[in-house]
Simulated assay, not measured.
Amino acid sequence: MTGLAVLAQARWPEPGDGVPPKVPGFVHSPFAPLAAEVAQRCLVRRYPDGPLPAGNRTAVVLVSAGGDTASAAHVRATVAAGGRIGPLFFFQSVPNSVAGHVAARWGLDGPVVCLSPGGDPRAEGEAQADLLMYDGDAAQALLILIELAPDGTSGEATAVLLGEGTRQ
């Protein structure tokens, strides 16, 4: 396996953070705004001039044990009450929708992978990034680790841009 090099990283929350900016097309839950904001922070630290050029082969690996629990709880409660689910919930119900949003916004043209870890989230995400680079599917990987708080109103996220280190 490789020694992955950390090219940039960011967290949510960082000092001074309030509420993450809304993301068009995503409603109700902080999951997508947290993932998009931490990815933005990370990528800006490495690429301050914006989207990457075509052919960058940057993968997105999103790792979350719980996923968007806030949206799931809202859908469950709405259905139980006999209500109608808004169409945006079908779109945002899978984590790869926000990963795809980040990839499109930044021009990341590598694979998009979402994992629900059984063990250490960072280790499993790094192993997936390593595999994508080892197989030649990606030159670097944006690893997003995200979990919502139990009440679904906030959460924590980390984004790490990984590149190849020294092969062993």
Rank of each mutant, 00 (worst) to 15 (best):
A138T: 05
A141E: 11
A129F: 04
L143S: 07
L132A: 00
G136P: 03
L145H: 02
D130Q: 14
G136I: 10
E126L: 06
E124R: 10
Q140C: 10
E126Q: 10
Q140Y: 12
L142V: 09
D137T: 04
A141T: 12
L131A: 14
E126D: 09
Y134S: 13
R122I: 10
I144R: 01
L145D: 01
A141H: 11
G118N: 06
L142G: 00
G119L: 01
L143E: 05
A123W: 02
D130S: 15
G125M: 09
A127I: 12
G118I: 03
R122V: 10
P121L: 02
G125V: 07
Q128L: 08
T153W: 09
L131M: 15
A138G: 01
G125L: 12
S154T: 12
G119N: 07
D130G: 15
L143H: 04
T153Y: 09
L131S: 09
A123G: 15
Q128Y: 03
D120L: 08
P121C: 06
P150T: 02
G118S: 06
P117A: 09
D120E: 12
P121H: 04
L142I: 12
G125T: 06
G119W: 00
Y134P: 11
D151W: 14
A139G: 09
G125I: 09
L132I: 11
R122Y: 10
D130V: 08
E147M: 12
T153P: 10
D137V: 06
Q140M: 10
D135V: 06
G118L: 14
E147D: 13
I146T: 05
G136S: 11
A139M: 08
M133A: 11
D130I: 03
G119Q: 08
A127M: 14
P117T: 05
S154A: 15
L132D: 04
L142N: 02
A139C: 07
G118M: 12
D151I: 13
A129Q: 02
T153D: 12
I144A: 08
A138M: 04
L142C: 01
S154H: 08
A149Y: 01
M133N: 07
E124I: 02
S154F: 05
G136K: 10
A129W: 07
L131E: 03
A123D: 14
D120W: 11
Y134R: 15
D151R: 08
E126V: 08
G136C: 13
M133K: 06
L132V: 08
R122C: 07
A127Q: 09
I144F: 08
T153E: 14
P121Q: 03
L145G: 03
A138L: 03
L143I: 02
L143P: 05
A141Y: 13
T153A: 14
A149M: 06
G125E: 04
L131D: 00
A149G: 08
L143D: 02
L131C: 11
E147R: 13
P117S: 10
G125W: 00
P121K: 02
A139T: 11
